[in-house]
């Protein structure tokens, strides 16, 4: 089982966009190590012949007709926005690019 390192936790925090403090990274590294060790137990029985279940009750082909439904009003859509400019949501400068 791979040991969980502080660097790894910092990387995970970056992927998860959480600006963890150094203290949090330290405590999470320890906790995560313990939890991962405990949950790795699933590998004992997860043999290749067992199929994965993603949904508890199997369903398929659940579709919606292509019919327009009333949208929110612009005011409703923006009602919770921390910042806005006119009818658009306003966000700080984007430096990283997708």
């Amino acid at each position: 089982m791979p040991e969980i390192t502080a660097e790894q936790v910092a990387h995970l925090a970056h992927l998860a966009r959480i600006d963890l403090s150094q203290d949090e990274i330290t405590s999470l590294t320890a906790e995560l190590g313990q939890i991962v060790e405990a949950v790795a137990k699933v590998q004992e029985v997860a043999t290749p012949d067992v199929a994965a279940t993603s949904h508890p009750i199997p369903l398929s082909n659940v579709f919606r007709p292509d019919t327009v439904v009333e949208s929110l009003t612009v005011e409703q859509a923006l009602s919770g926005a921390p910042d806005r400019d006119g009818d658009k949501f306003k966000v700080p400068a984007i430096l990283d690019e997708e």
Binding site: I18, D19, L20, V91, P92, A93, L95, D96
Partner: peptide, 14 residues
Amino acid sequence: GPLTSERVMAATRE
């Protein structure tokens, strides 16, 4: 530090 979208998201979630 600078106010970028990425940093504000991370600070908000923290």
